[in-house]
Design a protein around this nucleic acid. Structure first.
Length: 275
DNA sequence: ATGGCTGACGCTGTCAGA
């Protein structure tokens, strides 16, 4: 089963890229971020004609997340619940559409678009921190020890220096600061593993290239799009890669999709190897 | 790179992203 995440920077502008990529790559579950449209304008029929189910949480102009799946989508949850928002005073801020989760094939898929935060000394960075704290509470409520989880999306954080093209230029700046790195690590609770790094420990692996400064042509990127798996799912993972091809196209998203190949649901034979 | 690109909104500029 192939599960992918892709910040498409407007689904209506990118629909042809997404459709072609889905058909070419045989992806089973695709999580989108920055769809940038209200649900009524989301091109649902493009995906239903290809045989996909879909759940969406969008808003006008900004943010927006969606899950596209060949398998039935159950138990859809949109946003953080009110209790979580109130616990961090996040309810006082506008309700940005940044998280959608669902049960697909006995796997809890959690699709997130973490706020960028703008700059370290901004109100938006405070919002980013609070948002990640909400994510932590959200994950804790799911009972990480008893649920098979795939948490994926645009995290707007480079977890380590090897995830930035020139880390020395971005010491303690947005997407690289120790504050946000530690908050994310804390939210993962030691239960969710960055599957890309299981298979690819090397440098020069980016998922985002700035539109400016010829970042793509000079391969100056960041790895800010991630897939995190609980241990039981990680055991079934075969490989994980960043597909740079869509970023090389005309009028691309500034992000590339990240894909994980999992033997899921696990077969009895595979379980016997471990016990 | 002094955000020097892009998309949305809606009108020729402004906001936001990362």
């Amino acid at each position: 089963m192939l599960v992918a995440t892709w910040n498409v920077n407007s689904i209506r502008s990118r629909i042809d890229h997404v459709k072609e990529w889905l058909m070419t790559n045989n992806v089973d579950i695709l999580c989108l971020q920055e769809t940038k449209t209200e649900d009524q304008f989301f091109p649902v029929e493009v995906f239903s004609k290809l045989g996909y189910n879909i759940c969406i949480s969008g808003q006008k102009s900004y943010n927006g997340v969606a899950i596209i799946s060949r398998f039935p989508i159950n138990d859809i949850e949109i946003g953080f619940d009110q209790v979580i928002k109130e616990s961090t005073n996040l309810s006082a801020l506008s309700d940005q559409k940044r998280i959608i989760s669902a049960e697909i094939n006995e796997l809890r898929i959690i699709n997130v678009y973490v706020p960028n935060g703008s700059s370290i000394n901004s109100d938006k960075f405070i919002y980013k921190q609070k948002w990640i704290e909400c994510l932590k509470t959200h994950l804790q409520k799911i009972h990480l020890d008893h649920t098979s989880i795939c948490l994926l999306g645009d995290f707007n954080i480079a977890p380590e220096d090897r995830d930035i093209h020139t880390p020395s230029k971005y010491i303690e700046s947005i997407m690289a600061s120790s504050t946000e790195r530690e908050l994310l690590k804390d939210a993962l609770g030691g239960k969710l593993e960055d599957v890309f790094r299981i298979f690819e420990p090397g440098e020069q692996n980016w998922s985002w290239w700035d539109y400016r400064h010829s970042a793509w042509e000079r391969d100056k990127g960041w790895r800010i799009d991630h897939i995190y798996l609980t241990e039981d799912v990680l055991r079934c993972a075969n490989s994980c890669w960043i597909d740079k091809e869509p970023r090389s196209r005309e009028k691309p998203s500034d992000h590339a999709p990240v894909v994980v190949d999992i033997n899921w649901p696990p077969s009895d034979i595979e379980n016997e190897f471990f016990f």
